[in-house]
Amino acid sequence: MTVAIAPTGQRPEVLRMQAVGKTFGGTVEALRDMSLTVGQGDFISLLGPSGCGKSTALRLIADLIRPTAGAIRWAGGQNPGDLGVVFQEPTLMPWATVAQNVWLPFRLRGKSFPAVRDEVRAALRLVGLEAFHDSYPRELSGGMKMRVSIARAMVTRPRLILMDEPFAALDEITRFKLNNDLLTLKQRIGCTVIFVTHSVFESVFLSDRIVVMAARPGRVIRELAVDAPYPRDDAFRTSSEYAAHCRAATAALHTAMGEAA
């Protein structure tokens, strides 16, 4: 059974970026005039070449840097726990076990391990690593480390998960597997994701909305809807629908590259 997902406009709003711009050092314009409305349950990919401001956009949303222009508003105000983040590297604490790493977001909110033991276990089960509860990160493969990182990002069930090219450093086979697993996860817990990538195929496979961006200055070129229903599986990867979306995204990306050059 496919789950019908309402068009973006009808979903409750989580976050809105209004004409956001960011200039570093007064001269380097990393992002210009970006507007984006994130609805609950959206899976949005920011797709573009290097230097198009994708990562800057994520850092702005995460409040790690402040916008030079415009504003970012969370529906109903923002709390520190509203966000989960997955970086390009697994970014685990090497001195802590897998479970302790996943515990971190709770720990920083003053919750003891016994109090959230079940949540930590559940998150590890969702990424298929329950058996590695007490392992240290160095004992895991690259893909497994990334799963721990994903478990940590979603253990608190945040309103929004930011992913900054999380699978870019992995091999293709692991990447496909993690793409599939990420969608399964999304189906199960209904999280909202903003996913930065420079892979057309990854963005089409995962997202229901693709924001194509261009560089110098970083800006939004086009927004594409991928209206194929979830769950998507390997059959979707070979469908003509998928191919058509990839063509459209590639064309938009070419425009972006052309305009940038």
Binding site: R59, A62, D63, L64, P80, G81, L83, V85, F87, E89, T91, M93, L104, P105, R107, L108, R109
Partner: peptide
């Protein structure tokens, strides 16, 4: 990145020192 993560989760100065 871990520093950023601690900031995102609103870690206090003491938590950052102690856990990171």
């Amino acid at each position: 990145n871990l520093r950023d993560l601690f900031r995102i989760y609103g870690a206090t100065r003491w938590q950052k020192l102690r856990y990171l």
